[in-house]
Design a protein around this nucleic acid. Structure first.
Length: 273
DNA sequence: AACAGCTTCAACCGCATACCG
DNA sequence: CCGGTATGCGGTTGAAGCTGT
């Protein structure tokens, strides 16, 4: 366990000062990201490595977007949350400039509390929010089974793909009613690179561009005109219905077949407005 | 103006997984 | 294969600011 390290030896906690931010930023610029256990010593900070990492990832990293989420981003969060559940890092990976913490906080403040009001049995939350109870009319919400990606071992896969979006597929697993792994689903989503140098200004822009390119490919393949559709609409179409075992599964979906049911999202949109 | 209650979000905590010798 | 360590992630907390009375 690592956390005792943070608690021991009087390591500083709480809000970061400008001086600490300056030291950490300089350290990362000099040595690069990673090796977090070395960062406190290198930067001359009396902070634990986890605190340094979190501060960098959530606040100091370049090109982090602050402020309100755009409607398109909210739409994407809703759809991805429906697909992935509370996989905040995965969701954030598809929102350029947004951190997992941002997405999580946004969800908890804008959606979770509202869901807990309109469907408390599905979304329990410790504290009540009387104001919101008055503000929002009741809306029927159906529970959707989240398809949770399972860890996969790609150790035998060649790791020299320099174009991280050239493989459009993300393999996930679904669980059947007996909680047994039953199917592999290939979801066409751009995967953000891991472990590459992503500090350039192209970071978010590039993956988003690739996402759009992939959407265009799908569009061309299906010979459907999507002139006035938003990226998220295209993404929605891209991720549903799934391909199971590489084949069109539209006629053989099992008990977890709810890919085209985004009624909850629409209700949540109404809540926001 | 003062107070209480509520909301937001940065930061912390603990767990799971990856990595390495 | 095993054990220790590093890293990443999601849940939770709490201080600060905001809003209503």
């Amino acid at each position: 366990m690592n956390t005792p390290m943070c608690a021991s030896l009087g390591v500083r906690k709480g809000s970061w000062t400008e001086q600490e931010d300056f030291l950490l930023r300089n350290c990362i610029q000099k040595y690069g990201e990673g090796k977090w256990h070395l960062v406190p010593a290198r930067a001359g900070l009396n902070r634990c490595r986890k605190s340094c990492r979190l501060r960098w990832l959530n606040y100091l990293r370049p090109h982090i977007k602050r402020g309100d989420f755009a409607p398109d981003e909210v739409d994407l969060i809703l759809r991805l949350h429906k697909l992935l559940g509370n996989r905040w890092s995965l969701i954030a990976g598809r929102l350029p400039g947004r951190t997992a913490n941002d997405v999580k906080n946004y969800w908890n403040t804008h959606f979770h509390k509202k869901l807990s009001i309109i469907a408390p049995h599905l979304h329990p939350r410790p504290r009540s929010h009387p104001r919101l109870q008055i503000k929002h009319k009741s809306i029927a919400v159906t529970k959707n089974e989240i398809i949770r990606p399972q860890p996969r071992n790609f150790s035998n896969v060649k790791k020299n793909d320099s174009h991280w979006c050239n493989n459009k597929s993300m393999i996930t697993n679904t669980l059947d009613k007996d909680d047994k792994r039953c199917n592999e689903i290939v979801v066409n989503i751009c995967e953000k690179p891991i472990g590459e140098n992503t500090s350039s200004i192209d970071d978010g822009v590039e993956w988003w561009t690739n996402l759009l390119e992939n959407c265009i490919e799908i569009e061309e393949e299906t010979a459907i005109t999507n002139f006035e559709k938003t990226p998220t609409m295209l993404l929605h179409e891209e991720i549903s219905p799934p391909l199971i075992n590489g084949e069109d599964n539209s006629m053989q979906q099992g008990p977890t077949n709810n890919w085209d049911d985004f009624s909850t999202d629409i209700d949540l949109w109404n809540l926001l407005n």
